[in-house]
């Protein structure tokens, strides 16, 4: 019994000693570990996290598009011309490769259209946001307007022209397909309009029109190429 008492007393003494040492260490400034500072806690998401979320959203969007394309592919080349069931069962090269090639071409065309939309968006953004350099814009608009009165533009009518600092946007209506096809070639034969040009031809119910982006002579259109 006395042994138990001594044991309890010893344990209590050891506990008191450990508590004392602990309380003493708490007063000593600590070198290694940094205490958490309340002022440094961010209330909103940090900038890195926001960027990561944006990147993940973009990746998710790309994956969704890829999935959409893959879902469409089996429907596009349903039955290849000239392919027989027997040949397919035997695993011959013809019927297996033809749908793959067609599907890949369709996917490639889809990617190209998406890329063209990107470039168009870039051109349109520049056309809407660029400041106007009146010293260049006014005479260039006059030159474009005068040019459309010449014989090279027979069958085409200029409905709008607006120049900014580095590019002009033109809207043109056409009487026929030939006038639409030759628009760009005729436009770049005009002295003073030497630059890059992109035409977006449209044909809505037989009504032909074109939207033209034309750069300042010697300059390039605002398009970010990947290569």
């Amino acid at each position: 019994m006395s042994k138990v008492r001594w044991g309890v007393l010893g344990l209590a003494g050891a506990t008191v000693a450990v508590a004392g040492v602990w309380s003493l260490r708490g007063d000593v400034p600590m070198q290694g570990a940094t205490p958490p500072a309340v002022a440094e806690v961010h209330t909103g998401p940090p900038a890195d996290l926001e960027q990561e979320v944006r990147a993940l959203r973009a990746e998710l969007e790309a994956l969704r598009r890829a999935q959409g394309r893959l879902e469409q592919q089996p429907h596009a080349p349903a039955t290849p011309p000239g392919g027989s069931v027997t040949a397919k069962e035997e695993g011959s090269e013809g019927p297996d490769t033809a749908p793959t090639k067609e599907a890949e071409q369709a996917a490639q065309e889809q990617r190209r259209r998406e890329r063209v939309m990107e470039l168009d968006a870039e051109l349109e953004a520049a056309a809407n946001t660029e400041p106007r350099d009146t010293q260049w814009a006014v005479p260039t608009e006059s030159l474009v307007t005068r040019s459309f009165q010449g014989p090279d533009f027979t069958g085409s009518r200029l409905t709008r022209v607006e120049c900014r600092t580095h590019l002009c946007t033109l809207e043109v209506e056409h009487d026929n397909g030939d006038a639409q096809a030759e628009l760009l070639t005729s436009l770049l034969r005009v002295q003073g309009l030497r630059g890059q040009a992109v035409v977006r031809p449209q044909n809505e119910g037989g009504r032909r029109s074109s939207r033209v982006y034309l750069s300042r002579a010697g300059e390039r259109l605002p398009m970010t190429l990947r290569k």
Binding site: A181, L184, L188, R194, Q196, V199
Partner: peptide
């Protein structure tokens, strides 16, 4: 003066550069 033109298969010129 030279102009490089990119044309659709039907003959419609869609982009060009001139210098």
């Amino acid at each position: 003066c030279c102009t490089a033109t990119l044309t659709e298969p039907d003959g419609t010129a869609i982009t060009a550069d001139s210098g």
